Amino acid sequence: MNYPLYLDYNATTPCDKKVLECMLPYFTLDFGNASSEHHPYGWVAKEAIEDATLHISSLLKIDEKEIIYTSGSTESINAVLKGVYRKLKHKGNQILTVKTEHKATLDVCEYLQEEGADVTYLDVDGNGLIDLNALALAISDNTLIVSVMYANNETGVIQPMEAIAKICKQKNTLLFSDATQAIGKIPLDNFFSWVDFACFSAHKIYGPKGIGFTFAKLESQASLQSFIQGGGQQRKLRGGTYNTPAIVGLAKAIKLGINNLEAERDRLSNLRNQLEEGLSLIEEATINGKKSDRLCNTLNISYEYVDGQQLLAALSQNLAVSNGSACNSASINPSHVLTAMGIGRNLALSTLRISLGKYTTEEDIQQAILIITKEVAKQRASNLLWDRR
């Protein structure tokens, strides 16, 4: 198959060859179950997991016991929000989150409402940012946990997490952050001191699919109910056979991402800015979240007088881009992130999310500008409203 140019790195990333190479022995030669304590196959697998955990804790400057391996961020979100609510619901029932969160968070919150949770959804402004005063006013004695995504997967908007954490600490409220898009793109030097819980997925940082981890601060783990029972692994918080090759791959992906962060951030910022400048030359273009701090690799752009579905269908022959979250890409409704930012339905439906990655080149950027410019012009040529504007 002749694949189009890939510019959808916020949806997923290809597994780095260095990551794959370090995983391969644990599929074949060193295939043992890490819980098998009576022979070398188990010992080798257990040692590999311990080494991977040590590397992750050292790279991220967290305690090894603060790492809980999961199948990825969606599982982590379920584990944290359901776990905290069910463990602490005798103390209160309010969960605070944001209207622009990933659907994984919003869907879990909606599910918990059926169990009696009182979920408050905070508004964002036109730049995608929450109002810190509104957050402080919304927290009450009934609040169990605040859930705020660090960097938005659609717009790249980065929330002021340090200020959010300060408010939560003053109010004695737990803080959970979906940092899936942040790792490897922005420094996390102080992040883990701000939050009680966070989640990550390897496939967003050139690692394998089906593995991630929950960060659970040691002093906050008492607030977390066991999510999966069976086998007693991971201090009984998440039972089940360890996925040794995937855990090894996760550690390698994090190492590569952290070590290359500064250089790659500068490179991607430059490429994103070139792309933004080129696509802004098209008439009636709107850059969503432009006035906020954003991820270096993400551009969310809307065009008036264009049918978004037709545009994506036409572009798909040459470009792999999206109109929002991969988990919501089949929906015919406008992005909930953009509508929460006050963007009208028609414009929200005429939006492209373009996300760059480590294999994106300057030549790719120039090619993307040319392809999108030509296709927008082509669609507008057949739109009577464009002529009558």
Rank of each mutant, 00 (worst) to 15 (best):
E154W: 00
I139F: 12
L175Q: 07
I167Q: 12
T143E: 04
N190H: 14
A182N: 01
L174K: 04
N172P: 02
S147M: 07
P160K: 07
F191A: 04
W194K: 03
S177N: 01
I167M: 11
P187Q: 03
N172D: 14
S177F: 06
D178T: 07
K169H: 14
S140C: 09
V146H: 09
K169I: 12
M161N: 10
V195A: 05
F192V: 06
A134C: 11
I183P: 00
A179I: 05
K169S: 13
K169T: 14
V148W: 03
S201E: 01
N190A: 14
N153S: 14
V195W: 03
N142V: 12
A198G: 12
D196H: 14
I139S: 12
Q181S: 08
E162M: 12
A198T: 10
K171Q: 13
I139M: 14
A182Q: 00
L144K: 08
F191T: 05
L137D: 15
T180E: 08
I145C: 04
S140K: 13
D189I: 12
K169R: 15
T173D: 08
C168E: 07
K171G: 06
F197C: 03
F192K: 06
S177V: 04
A138D: 10
S177H: 04
G184K: 01
A198M: 02
C168R: 01
G184E: 05
S140W: 02
C168I: 04
K171C: 06
N172M: 07
S147C: 15
N153H: 05
T180V: 14
L144W: 13
Q170A: 12
Y150V: 09
T180L: 00
I186Q: 08
A165Q: 07
V157C: 06
N142S: 14
N142A: 13
P160H: 07
T180N: 09
A198H: 01
A136C: 11
D178G: 06
D141N: 15
V157S: 05
A134P: 04
K169F: 13
E162R: 15
T143M: 03
N190Y: 13
V157W: 09
I158V: 15
F197V: 02
S177W: 05
A165E: 05
T143A: 11
V195M: 03
Y150C: 10
E154L: 03
F192P: 05
I145W: 11
I183F: 14
F197T: 04
G184C: 04
A163Y: 08
M149W: 05
D189H: 08
S177R: 00
K185G: 00
I164H: 09
T180C: 10
M161D: 10
K171R: 15
L135A: 10
K166W: 10
L135P: 09
D141I: 08
V195K: 01
S140T: 15
I186L: 12
I167P: 08
W194C: 10
L175S: 08
S147F: 12
